[in-house]
């Protein structure tokens, strides 16, 4: 009995000792904390993983919580980098300056949305205004756009997803009659972009949206051409080779946005080195592989 007790005691001490060692190692590392946009969490996680392979002396902690959380942690100094999927608003910058913080913006990637319909649908082109009417529930029949006389069925993503947020920002963004528009509640929320593609490919009356990279290889879906309200030509985010980066980079395709990393003033050397890595060729290759859109190539 006594023997067993001793073994337990010793192994217990051993475990505590091992935990202690582990902590010692962590303390000697430089920790970079990144918080913010949920759209950017996976991408930032990939950058961090690859970067930590090059710089084993640095440990990068990435958490999400939304762009709002990112702004909050930038203001109270709990994060070295805030991931924000839109530009800071005027009042947010004022608030930061009052607190003695100088937000510095670094563009790190782009994000875009493609609109998909079933190949049976005869409609090829819609404008941003049309999309607004469709997704806010004002127009509910395809014949209003010259299509078949049938109800429009809307497929979208969960309200926590980044594409949901971007779509709402670009398409439904403007206020109308003193109230901000929102998606009609009959829009079906799907769990991922692939199940969304599946749903639209099974539904001749469906329309859905998702990240541009996802649909480039699918023949059972039709990608719509999207027209800016003030322009004549409509553009598709894809061409025969996949994503049509130049159309997105020159701003002709409207449903895109930049993703930013914000820091307080000039970041220290370690953080700056990480940001340099992100915008380097390796960093932007990761962006491409993760089906986001890399930054415009400047030659």
């Amino acid at each position: 009995m006594i023997k067993v007790n001793k073994i337990i005691q010793i192994s217990f001490l051993g475990i505590i000792f091992l935990f202690g060692c582990n902590k010692e190692n962590l303390i000697s590392k430089r920790i970079i904390t990144i918080r913010g946009s949920d759209t950017m969490v996976n991408l930032t996680q990939r950058w961090a993983e690859e970067y930590m392979k090059i710089r084993p002396d640095i440990s990068i902690h990435v958490t999400g919580g939304g762009s709002g959380t990112g702004i909050a942690s930038l203001l109270n100094g709990t994060a070295d980098i805030a991931n924000i999927s839109r530009e800071l608003k005027g009042n947010e910058i004022e608030k930061a300056i009052k607190l003695g913080i100088m937000p510095k913006q670094t563009s790190v990637a782009m994000d875009g949305i493609a609109l998909i319909v079933n190949p049976e649908n005869i409609i090829d082109t819609l404008s941003i205004e049309d999309l607004k009417n469709i997704f806010s529930g004002k127009i509910t029949n395809w014949k209003d756009f010259g299509g078949a006389d049938s109800k429009i069925l809307l497929y979208g993503r969960e309200n926590s997803s980044g594409t949901y947020e971007l779509f709402k920002q670009v398409v439904l963004g403007k206020k109308e009659g003193g109230r901000s528009l929102d998606f009609t509640s009959s829009m079906q929320a799907l769990q991922g972009t692939s199940s969304l593609g599946e749903a639209v490919s099974n539904d001749p009356n469906g329309i859905g949206f998702g990240g541009v990279g996802y649909f480039s290889l699918r023949s059972d879906l039709k990608i719509l051409f999207i027209k800016n309200d003030n322009s004549v030509n409509a553009y598709s985010p894809l061409n025969e080779n996949g994503v049509n980066y130049s159309i997105i980079w020159n701003g002709k395709y409207p449903l895109t946005r930049y993703l930013y990393c914000y820091t307080n003033g000039e970041p220290d050397l370690d953080v700056q080195d990480f940001l340099n890595y992100i915008v380097s060729k390796e960093g932007q290759d990761i962006v491409r592989n993760m089906e986001y859109i890399p930054l415009p190539e400047t030659f």
Partner: peptide, 30 residues
């Protein structure tokens, strides 16, 4: 179908309480 519509029609898409928690709690900011 996960559409939180105020409806009594069984042939429409609906969203249940359980599905809402499951789909949204993972991503919501604390």
């Amino acid at each position: 179908g996960s559409a939180p519509e105020f409806t009594l029609d069984v042939f429409k898409s609906v969203k249940t309480m359980t599905a809402t928690i499951a789909a949204e709690l993972g991503e919501v900011s604390q």
